[in-house]
């Protein structure tokens, strides 16, 4: 191994995970998920009636995701409002979450998922998906599974999980880092998000997917713990 991670992490070690539920009391469900310095907040509103009415689907509810970064969350100020990048991420996030949701139970409605990045240091779409799936569960929307995402990468020929911005931009001898955001439905082991940027051989890509799955099962435990916490806190309140 030639590349040594500057923060001393092992190749299969994520940054410090923070998972909290109920961070936006007004919302029907909400959560915060952080990979170290990357912090995402998600709020869920719905299922609620969809307007205009002609957009309603009598068979199932509609899922709408809005992902964006706060203007001050990155080095150079990001112009507020949606960009092409954020539109695409909103779209792939919708597709990543959809397989876990049982929207057939809510015909004619819409579920809005709003994801905001408070602080960015790579892996924002994955943190956003993790926060969103917890927020959806917190909102009590029927789901078959949670959704857990992580970005895996190939740095200097070696596979590592949860890359930082510095690692994403790392270049050695013309070899750029490959970045692979991926999401799993942890119970079924199915893949609902798969993107890649960089340059990688097929065998290494498969290795990266295997490592991503192992990492996601660890992240899944953190998500569950946070969701269980909020329930036990509620129970305590009722007892009081």
């Amino acid at each position: 191994m030639t590349y040594k991670r500057s923060d001393g992490r092992e190749a299969d070690e994520t940054r410090k995970i923070r998972a909290e539920v109920g961070v936006v009391p007004r919302a029907d469900g909400s959560a915060l998920f952080a990979f170290g310095d990357t912090i995402a907040i998600a709020a869920v509103y719905g299922p609620k009636p969809l307007h205009p009415q002609h957009l309603q689907n009598p068979e199932k509810g509609l899922l709408r995701c809005y992902y964006d970064m706060m203007s001050f969350s990155v080095g150079e100020r990001k112009r507020p409002g949606p960009s092409r990048r954020s539109s695409e991420i909103s779209f792939v996030t919708t597709n990543a979450l959809m397989p876990a949701l049982q929207l057939g139970n809510f015909p004619g409605t819409v579920v809005d998922v709003c994801i905001s990045i408070l602080q960015a240091n790579a892996g924002t779409r994955c943190a956003g998906i993790n926060a969103a799936s917890m927020a959806l569960a917190h909102a009590g929307i029927s789901m078959s599974d949670l959704v857990t995402a992580v970005s895996v990468g190939q740095i200097d020929g070696q596979i590592a999980v949860d890359l930082t911005k510095e690692e994403e931009d790392y270049e050695s001898g013309g070899e750029k880092t490959t970045d692979i955001p991926i999401s799993f439905l942890p119970l079924s082991g199915k893949i609902s998000l798969l993107q890649l940027d960089g340059g990688i051989k097929a065998e290494k890509l498969k290795e990266a997917i295997e490592i991503a799955q192992k990492t996601c099962s660890k992240i899944y435990e953190e998500q569950k713990k946070a969701l269980k916490n909020i329930i036990s806190r509620k129970e305590e309140k009722i007892k009081e």
């Binding site: 792939v92 609902s192 890649l196 960089g198 340059g199 990688i200």
Partner: peptide
């Protein structure tokens, strides 16, 4: 492989 994009609403094993 330089870029990948998965699309569509269904998941894959």
């Amino acid at each position: 492989i330089n870029a990948i994009q998965k699309g569509g609403e269904k998941e894959l094993t």
